[in-house]
Amino acid sequence: MPTTRIIDRPARIVEIVWAYAATPDDFDRINDEIKRFSEELGGSFDVLVDMRTVKAFKPELQAKLVEHQKAIKLYGMKRAAVVTAGSIARLQLNRTAKQSEHTTETQWDDYAEALAFLKL
């Protein structure tokens, strides 16, 4: 099951850990939680997205992923550092980022490096 939490309040970093078995309801729940976290963090935050266990989202979730990316931008996301383990996930993310006009996403192979980038 996907999870989200604030991992660094001073740096205003929210973490999302996705799972391949994510459902449309999971996207809605994560969006609601991020909206609440945004309010707690003053309306501006960065996101560390952990997709190391996701090769790609199921095709029926593509539209939900685009909606999710648009929503969290509206909630105040400034940058996203996405940790992936495969090229298929990266291709999918590149496609959905274009559809959601999300231009501040970077992709990483290493979780620690992605987190360090967001703390700069």
Score class of each variant (00 low, 15 high):
Thr104Glu: 15
Asp110Gln: 06
Phe57Trp: 05
His68Tyr: 11
Ala21Arg: 11
Arg95Ser: 11
Val66His: 02
Lys73Asn: 10
Pro10Ala: 08
Phe57Met: 09
Lys98Pro: 00
Ala81Gln: 05
Pro24Lys: 02
Phe117Gly: 00
Leu41Glu: 10
Tyr111Gly: 06
Arg95His: 12
Ser87Ile: 07
Glu113His: 07
Lys98Asp: 15
Ala11Asn: 14
Ala89Met: 14
Arg12His: 14
Leu65Gly: 06
Gln92Lys: 02
Met1Val: 10
Thr96Glu: 12
Leu120Ala: 09
Gln69Val: 00
Val49Ala: 15
Asp26Thr: 09
Thr103Leu: 11
Gln69Ala: 13
Leu48Arg: 11
Leu120Tyr: 05
Val82Lys: 09
Arg9Asp: 09
His102Phe: 15
Thr23Ile: 03
Ser44Tyr: 09
Lys73Gly: 13
Leu65Met: 12
Arg95Glu: 14
Val49Arg: 04
Lys73Phe: 07
Ala22Tyr: 08
Arg12Ile: 02
Leu91Glu: 12
Gln99Tyr: 00
Thr104Pro: 03
Arg95Ile: 12
Thr84Tyr: 07
Gln92His: 08
Asp109Glu: 15
Glu101Thr: 00
Asp28Ala: 14
Val82Tyr: 08
Leu93Pro: 00
Ala114Leu: 04
Pro2Tyr: 04
Lys119Trp: 02
Glu60Leu: 04
Asp109Arg: 14
Trp18His: 05
Leu48Tyr: 07
Arg95Val: 10
Thr103Ile: 06
Lys73Trp: 06
Thr106Asp: 12
Ala22Asp: 14
Leu115Ala: 04
Glu40Tyr: 02
Glu113Gly: 01
Asp25Thr: 15
Lys73Ala: 13
Thr106Ile: 07
Phe37Trp: 03
Pro59Glu: 14
Arg9Tyr: 08
Phe57Cys: 04
Arg79Gly: 01
Asp46Met: 09
Gln99Asp: 12
Asp50Pro: 05
Glu67Ser: 12
His102Trp: 05
Gly76Arg: 06
Lys70Gln: 15
Gly86Asp: 09
Arg12Gly: 03
